[in-house]
Design a protein around this nucleic acid. Structure first.
Length: 488
RNA sequence: GGUCGGAUGGCCGAGUGGCUAGGCAGUGGUCUGCAAAACCAUCUACACCGGUUCGAAUCCGGUUCCGACCUCCA
């Protein structure tokens, strides 16, 4: 339970991870805004922090993992008064906003479960914490860091910056931001362009609205995370995560809000995953170049040459370090698919390995190497490279080129079990149709084929093989007879 | 424009001073009636120009190109 190092955006370096309380870790990750289909971009933070969650548990920590659902319609931008993403969608579809939010929340959770992402300990919704958000806004006003104008409340960034450092996380200087944000703000009520909304008055056409001390309105974008992390993890907790695109302004604002309200910076460690790119460009909703997860799963998108099962997506992401961008392409996903099946087939081989009295190959280093890589800021690609080295040993042993003792085989089983299933959350892509009927029929067919082969009746043997292949049943001839598997 | 990051072999992607990353593809081989699958072996690198060093993909300076954030975004 020691020596896990993680990169902290706050300090800009890798730091030894020391939780606030010895055996317990508190972790908050920014979840999705539920107004559209979950896409590949959503999978990255979910999987990155799922790995961290799993690994912390593996190390014996008790983890409370909170990942929010943003189901409150935030404004598209400051100039666009009264329109929010969820509300807009609801109007277009003639639905209640919460119907839209609920629909996409289910979609998101479903996709995450396909990807074998563990459910967080708590998945709170912004709409369920309006009262708490109002309370926090009040606290910030009382502390003198926010002001009310026309039914909206804004965070006074300039004043805050005179006492604290607005920019600790993103490295931004307030002067630069002020200079660079001199675009026409419409008839904004803000004192300074850097100020951001804590509570926004609802325009008449705005359909998501709640009563507040300042009139009917809705909470600002950043306040929900501050409120919910504080409620469930305390004013100071261990890890706050999310995508790199959230560093500024979202997480910067969160820190400011928490400092303004509680004199605490919320999280000790701030972790950010990098983006997924498509042809070198960020895959994102605003760019319209995203591919949804269900499109990956069913292959139904013009850019996709085939369907990619959830585990392939998961493995694909693990092949890159979470802080690197990863470029999507059919070629790399297909490579991932083959790599993954090589890994699983070796695990299968491992189950049936014949133990020898003594080992002729040293496998003791793998466990340590994997651990070192994992503890070095979750270097999953390095862990995988060690596992693939071990795959070679397993296969070579199976070919009688090496011997492995019973103890060493157990150690390898342990290694693969821990990393593949427990920590990486990879599961076999079993699409096996193991119905009794099919099994029986296949047994008969393979027997006929085997008899024809004995009689050197290659026409019949090949006919059976080729016809089955046509309906996606693949025959594999091995020394000990033939096996079959369902390709679809 | 400001801030930050990146440029690695056919593709993806690790690696911060000397030792084979790994996966996929390619090539050769084993197996096989043939094939597929599987397995084994193996080739192709470090954007460019200088510098530091016994030695640089790795450090320093410069150049070119690309990306992210600065508006909602994972």
């Amino acid at each position: 339970m020691r020596d896990l190092n993680i990169y902290n955006t706050l300090s800009g370096v890798k730091e030894k991870f020391t939780p606030l309380s010895k055996d317990v870790v508190s972790m908050y990750v920014c979840g999705p805004t539920v107004y559209g289909e979950p896409h590949l971009g959503h999978a990255r933070p979910a999987i990155t922090f799922d790995i961290l969650f799993r690994y912390l548990c593996f190390l014996g920590y008790k983890v409370r993992y909170v990942r929010n659902i943003t189901d409150v319609g935030h404004l598209l931008n400051d100039a666009d008064d009264g329109e929010d993403k969820i509300g807009k969608k609801a109007k277009a579809l003639k639905l209640e906003p919460m119907e839209v939010a609920h629909f996409y929340t289910k979609k998101y959770q479903e996709a995450m479960s396909f990807l074998n992402v563990k459910t967080p300990s708590i998945e709170p919704t912004a709409s369920g914490h309006i009262i708490e958000q109002i309370e926090m806004v009040k606290k910030i006003i009382d502390n003198g860091f926010a002001y009310e104008v026309n039914g909206s409340v804004y965070f006074d960034v300039v004043k805050y910056n005179s006492k604290h450092n607005y920019g600790v996380l993103s490295g931004r200087k307030i002067e630069d931001i002020l200079e660079n944000t001199r675009q026409l703000d419409g008839q904004s009520d803000k004192k300074n362009s850097v100020d951001f909304a804590l509570w926004k008055k609802a325009a008449p056409e705005h359909i998501m609205r709640w009563p507040s001390p300042w009139g009917e309105g809705f909470p600002g974008w950043h306040i929900e995370c501050s409120t919910m992390s504080c409620k469930y993890l305390g004013e100071q907790f261990d890890i706050h995560g999310g995508g790199m695109d959230l560093v500024f302004p979202h997480h910067e604002a969160e820190i400011a809000q928490c400092c303004a309200a509680n004199q605490k910076s919320a999280a000790t460690y701030w972790m950010h995953n990098n983006m997924i790119t498509i042809s070198g460009q960020k895959m994102g909703k605003s760019l319209g170049n995203f591919i949804t997860l269900s499109e990956f799963f069913n292959g139904n998108h013009e850019k996709l040459e085939q369907s990619y099962p959830p585990m392939v997506i998961r493995f694909f992401l693990l092949q890159a370090h979470y802080r690197s961008t990863i470029d999507f392409s059919n070629e790399s996903l297909q490579a991932a698919e083959k790599g993954l099946s090589r890994l699983f087939s070796a695990i299968k081989t491992l189950q049936n390995l014949e133990p020898s009295v003594k080992s002729t190959v040293d496998i003791s280093s793998y466990k340590i190497k994997c651990e070192v890589a994992m503890k070095d800021d979750l270097n999953t690609p390095i862990v995988l490279s060690h596992l693939f080295d071990a795959v070679k040993v397993i296969n070579a042993t199976n070919e009688k080129k090496f011997d492995l003792s019973k103890e060493d085989i157990l150690e390898l089983k342990d290694l693969f079990y821990n990393y593949t299933y427990e920590i990486f959350g990879l599961e076999e892509m079993e699409k096996q149709d193991d119905s009794q009927d099919l099994n029986g029929i296949m047994k008969i067919l393979l027997e006929i084929r085997s008899k024809s082969k004995e009689k050197k009746d290659w026409d019949t043997a090949d006919f059976i093989r080729d016809q089955l292949n046509e309906i996606n049943i693949e025959i594999k001839d091995t020394k000990d007879g033939s096996t079959w598997n369902n390709k679809k």
